[in-house]
Design a protein around this nucleic acid. Sequence first.
DNA 1: TCCAAATCCTTGGATGTCCTACTATATTCC
DNA 2: GGAATATAGTAGGACATCCAAGGATTTGGA
Lengths: 167, 167
Amino acid sequence: MATPLPRDPIADARLNWERHGWSEVAAPMAAITAIMRTQQILLARIDGVLKPFGVTFARYELLALLSFAHGGALPMNKASALLQVHPTSVTNAVDRLQGVGLVIRSTHPTDGRTTLIELTPEGRALAGRATAALNVEVFAQSGFTEQEVDQLIRVLGSFRRDAGDFA
Amino acid sequence: MATPLPRDPIADARLNWERHGWSEVAAPMAAITAIMRTQQILLARIDGVLKPFGVTFARYELLALLSFAHGGALPMNKASALLQVHPTSVTNAVDRLQGVGLVIRSTHPTDGRTTLIELTPEGRALAGRATAALNVEVFAQSGFTEQEVDQLIRVLGSFRRDAGDFA
DNA sequence: TCCAAATCCTTGGATGTCCTACTATATTCC
DNA sequence: GGAATATAGTAGGACATCCAAGGATTTGGA
């Protein structure tokens, strides 16, 4: 990766906010900006681990979700809701996963509008191997202490609830 | 926004991890997934506020950075480093901002390789109005308590340092 | 029963991000 | 000096996400 900057650019932004008389919101601005940047770092790390498996994080998430579903199948709209992404994002992911034989689309037995996404044996196998890799190479060395992990889960959990993600 | 889910999907994922014998990494997995989702929520909120100004968060960040620079100008590579995005992302943003007259490209006085990005008066004015809107509509009601903001800044700050963002 | 409203999925378009490769300009070192 | 190396920015391509719009199917109320 690139050479580290001599100073934290987010801390500098916070100072700029304070200098301009926006001290009231300087800290939340810094926290939010830090979340954005942290997500970038984590996504790059995850996609790097998944690259050898030929899937991206978005596609892996779908495979993992299906692997936990009874029968290894879920309606598209359920997947969209649980992954909390736009339906078109699921369409996109399914197109690509189906293209390489990791999932197949099948029609819902009673509702003609609904399309079921079904894990193939190859998809299930890949999900297992990819999860093992992520567990070892990312989650087991997240860079957060146990206490920090608990704080993040608590703080971001209430944030997501307040944002309307879940009841 | 859509109807809230009856259960937290990330907490459910964590339970699935534990049920499959990955208890050691279930919590970090949940924390990381929560960061990803929180970023999505925040980005949507920010872009919603910026929409009336005709800019996205990526372009706003560049305008804000320039507004704090002496002379309202920065080399492309400096902007890339400070925003911590790929150079091509800056090229993209500058193309669009220049297209609507908010910035202009100028050549570096001594280094012919370098291109300076310069804020136009319109760009500076828009940056000011957009910042005011974000301060009031997003940062002042972030959904985090002061204590949570401090925790996030501390935890994510050390994470970013460890990730090599800054010294 | 039958048509309007709701739901499901897909297509097409806009953005942002990254990577690889390429051109132009500077620097370094023989 | 001049060639090899390094740095700056851009073009082209791959992905993911969202929104708006449209076709298909189901549900529900008149």
